[in-house]
Every structure is written in structure tokens, then in C-alpha cells.
Design a protein around this nucleic acid. Sequence first.
DNA 1: CAGTGAGCGAGCTTCCGCTTGACTT
Length: 701
Amino acid sequence: MGNNSKGTLIIVESPAKARTIEKYLGSGYVVEASMGHLVDLPKSRLAIDVDKGFQPEYITIRGKAKILKGLQKAAGKSSAVLLASDNDREGEAISYHLKNAILRVKPDVPIKRIIFNEITPQVIREAVDRPREIDEAKVEAQKARRILDRLVGYHLSPILWKKVKNGLSAGRVQSVALRLICEREQEIESFVPEEYWSLEVELRKGRAAFRAALVEYGGKKCELRSQADCDRIIAGLHGREFRVCDVKETTKTLRPRPPYTTSKLQQEAANRFGFTSRKTMQIAQQLYEGVDIGSGRVGLITYMRTDSTRVSAVALQEVREFLAGHYPEELPEKVNVYASGSRAQDAHEAIRPTYVANTPADIKSSLSADQFKLYSLVWERFVSSQMTPGRSSTTTVEIGAGDALFRSSSTSVIERGYQKVLRVLAPKNVQKSLPKLETGELLEALRFHPEQHFTSGPARYTDATIIKTLEEKGIGRPSTYAPIISVLLDRYYVVRRNRQLAATQLGRIINNLLTENFSELVNENFTAEMEKRLDDIEGGNESWVNVVQEFYRDFKPQVDHVMETLESIKGVLDEPTDLVCERCGRPMVKKLGRYGFFIACTGFPECRNTKPVPLADCPREGCDGKIVARRAAKGRGREFYGCTNYPECDFVTYDKPTGSTCPRCGRFLVAKEDRQRGSYKACINPECDYLHTHEAEDKSA
DNA sequence: CAGTGAGCGAGCTTCCGCTTGACTT
């Protein structure tokens, strides 16, 4: 590029990325961001002409016109344009749409495509020196994906509006997620807990005591079904010698884990801190965009939406230097390499700290509590991923007594290896110690500990487990994991109970309708099959129209058939109540509206009386008001619960009423949660100390 | 730990995937 050049415009997706790249390239380059897609199908209608080869009608996305105009203007001032959107299917489509938009205002400007999958000076330079053309086949694969999703979503949803309720939705991804959650709900319902018992014996050698568990009786794996089973065995062991019959020691290598992908970070943050996927992504975004750590704003982590565990050469060198300085013993000879998932599109690196020298402890004072927690995860996981393994040793002792065989084991870490850098991620050590024992040794049996248990059914999905499952099945992308959960909650298909995702009545109805009428679509293999066909398009072996046509040929007649024949179940969701309309005397029902549940008169439309759902009676002496949910700050604030007699009665609480009443004082119980007790119910009355701790199963949704 | 109050809703909805702010009805 000569000195007279007007410079090259580079367009990336993320503004934070644009800032970094501009810094790396210096003068002669202007780097701007598109903020994702600028062009898409309009929201308001199907916008696909199925009779004309599925011709899509693309428009500028509402609110993005300003950005597009800005990019067109910047292109006008440039001598060349390099499209540097992400190196994946969606990125290729973004580049394609940008190219068309720019050519409309400046037909003669040279436009090329560049790709890089890490943001380091060397890689950026190389990419800029090796521009290529847009990959049309990849763009077509994206087009097929987009149109397929539109056809599925915009044909299924209206069926739900007509047959069940307005405003509902269905789609290739959300409906599979819903199906998984509903099926789990059924498994839980049909599960019958079975009683079983465990039997431990407390043994003594000298001054040391330890417990061993019964594992075999009469040479067979023992299954204790009742207290009587335990008593029988205990009686049979009366006066018997307890003798060590085997001592085994095994060592295990503890390998460090790969650095985080989006899904793994969401899982860990959910399991460790109880963060929702949404919260994790919000905080990660803050760390990515940058925090002032004393020397101005610095991006603390790499891009947070990724499916790859790959790490740039620069970062590997940097972490090895860090380790050489701080943990020389734990620096392996060669770098550790991790494989990404098989369906990974690999457009970005793993999530890692931008500078390992910024240790969590160093920058703690500049971070919020949540930022610190999440940064610690990212930093610890990345640094440890490039360290040597640890080693643990497990001692297993077997003790014979009559026909019974008891076993006890203890594990200890003999070499911490990578675990040395773990703080937040440190394994919780429940160290059980055994005295030094030898085969043939006689032990003193102090007492028996029989214990009753019940088999527990499958657990409901949480943010962590539903995302793990979806990712394993190749459904959804890093940018959509959190929104998938949000849409199921927004539609009232699913509710969060504690941290679990439970299907509602509405969710089950929708799931039944979809599985009964569109079983192939809500099957998890549908996406896998679609991906194969997209690969065919990308490889130039198939046209996008054929792929869409092939699907639509069977899909559309089924849509029409269901639309015509399925009986409407509108109104069955309205729950009868014992409330009577004070205006017209007709009974009232509980309905689901756009903003949640409400009480309405059955005389609609002649009587339009509505009111919020009463959750409990006001606990104030002499007040006849009901407690209802309210929201502060124009609906933006946190939900709280107040009396309908406000302002005459100013009773208010942030604790959610449970619907049950206190057996001691008759006032209502609220849901509470803390570390020791988990979730429990407590009486709202401060003078009453009633607590209900054991989880009463609440099946109503 | 602090912090607190509309009125709506029952026809015009909905998909998935890419990206940030503006601002929730």
C-alpha cells in the first residue's frame, strides 16, 4: 500500500476486537465493528417465497441501519475493504451481506475476506497479507440453516397460537430442550423410591478408629433391604474376629483439565457459584470488554463465546514463562494439547486470561465480587491446563469377619502438580485417614452403624446440565445456550425451582402436541441430520434449495394437516379458583397473560374485571388484605410481596410466599435458602420461629 | 447487605444465530 493510499477498512464483528486489532496494525488501517449480523429476514412475516425456490427476502435488521450506513461511509473513504468477521458459517454470511451492502455504495472498491482464529499481532498480520474471496458454499450452508429454522419456527408457532394459546413458540432448538426437560419430569414422576440399607462397622487399632462398610456377605455382593437384614448380619457377627485380609495401594494420575469453552464455563459457574448461564455471560462480557485495573481499561479475558479449547502460540509461551518463574517444578517439557469437540467450528480460541501475569489476587481490588469469581475460574483453569499432572494414592483395606467382608479406603494427594495454582477450583478435601494396617492383623470392633437410605430418582436439569446435554447433541451454539433457557422461562414452559428447571403444565401440553405430531422434528437427531446436509452444501456437493425442499416437502403437509384436524385446547389452562367476581358475581379463573399469571372474571368480555394472583392472607392483625407480587422501579426492580390494602396496610416482604400456612400461628410460610439448610420454608411471623426444612415435594408448577 | 408499591393481560404473537447497548409495556 503506497503512501498516497486512503487506507484499508477492516470490518470485524465485535467492537472490543476492533480496538485490539487497530492497535496491532497501526496506521494505514481503520478497524470497525458490525456488531454481528446486519441483514436478516424480517421478524413480522415468513419472508420466504416457497413457490419461487424458497427465495428469502433479506432486510436491514431494525436498529442496525446506523451501523450499516457508518460502515458504508467508512468504505467510501477507503481504498480497500477486508471483511474479517468470524471464521465460521455465520461469519461468512455476515461478510457476504456486508460485501453486497458496500458494493451498492461503492461498486469499484476491492473487497476481500480475511480470517484468523486468534487475536495476536503476528496472526493478524499474516491474515491481512493473505486475503481470499468469500466462500459462497459456506454462505449457502448458512442460508439453508437460516431458512430451515425460519420455516420450522414460523410454521409451528402459529399452530400453537391456534390450538393452545397466543404468543407461544416452537423451534428446532427450543422444542428439543423442552422435550428433554419434560421427559426428565416424567421419569421423576414415575420413579418409585426403594428402601435400602448400608452397614458400617467402627473398628479400632490401638488408639486409631475408622469405619469400614459391608460389601459382601457369604461371598455375594450384599443388598440390605431392611433393618431386619442389618440386625441379622450384626447378630451373626457377634463374637467374631475382625481380621485384615487384604491391603492394596494404587496410585492415580490426576490430569489437568482443558481451558474453558463457553458451555464448560457456564457449567462450572453454575455448579460452583450458582450463577445462571445468563449471569455468567454478562460477567464474562464485562471481563472481555475490559476493567480499569489501575492502568486504564484492559480486556481481561479472550472472547467468551467459543466452542474451542485451542490456545494461541503467544499465550502458550506467556503461560510457560509465568510458570517458569512461579512454579518451575510444575512446568512440563512440552505444552499440553487438548482436543476440541468434534463439531467445534473453532472460530475463536478457548476462554483464557489475556495476560496471565494478571493473577486473580493481583487485580482483586479492581473487580466486583462476581467478576473476581469468574476471572478466577478462567485464570486458574487456563494456567493449570499447562502444568504437570498431580498424583494421588488410594489405600483400600478389606476386613473379614465370619461370612462378612468389609472395605474401607482413603485417598491422599502425593503430588499436587497443577492443583498448586487452584484456589477457587481447589478440590474439596474430605480426608479420611486409615491407620497403618497389615494383612492378618486383628482389629477390635467397637460398634455397628446401620443406616437407612432410599434410591433417588433422576435429578431435574439445571442450567449446567441442560447446556451440557444440548452441547453433546450438537444443538445450539455458544451464543445461544443462555437464551435457550431464557425463552423456555419466558414462555412459561419451564420454571426455576431452586436451581432446577421444572416443566410446567403448559410446557407439557406443548411438548405432547409437538412430540405427537412432529416427532421427527423434536428428535435430537434432527439437528445432527441437518448439520450433515449443511456440510454437503459447504463441500459443494449439494445445493441449499435441495436441502430445504427435501425438508419442506414432508413438513408442510403435516403442518396443514395438524392445523386443520387437531382439536383446540384453548382455555383448558385456565385454572378454576374459589374467587367470585365482586362486580358481577361470576366465578373467576387464573389465566396466563403476557406478564405472568393473573385472575380474571369468566364473564369476559362483558365483565373485564382482573386482579393479581393472591398468594396469601396478610399476616397483619385485623387486616383483610391479600399478599400479591409487586415490582418496583417501573417493573424493572426485583419482585417483592405486599398487601393489597396498601397504603392503608404497608406490609411488605422480599420472601416469596409458598402457599402453605404455619401450623403454629396460622400465618403464611415463605421460601428461604441458605448454605447450611439449603432451601426450606419459614414462617413470615417474626415472633414465630417455625421452620420446615425437609424438602416437601411440591409438584404443582 | 439493602431495598419497596403502574397497570396490563383476553389477536397480531413466532424461529436461530451473530453482536452490543438502550431501555424495558
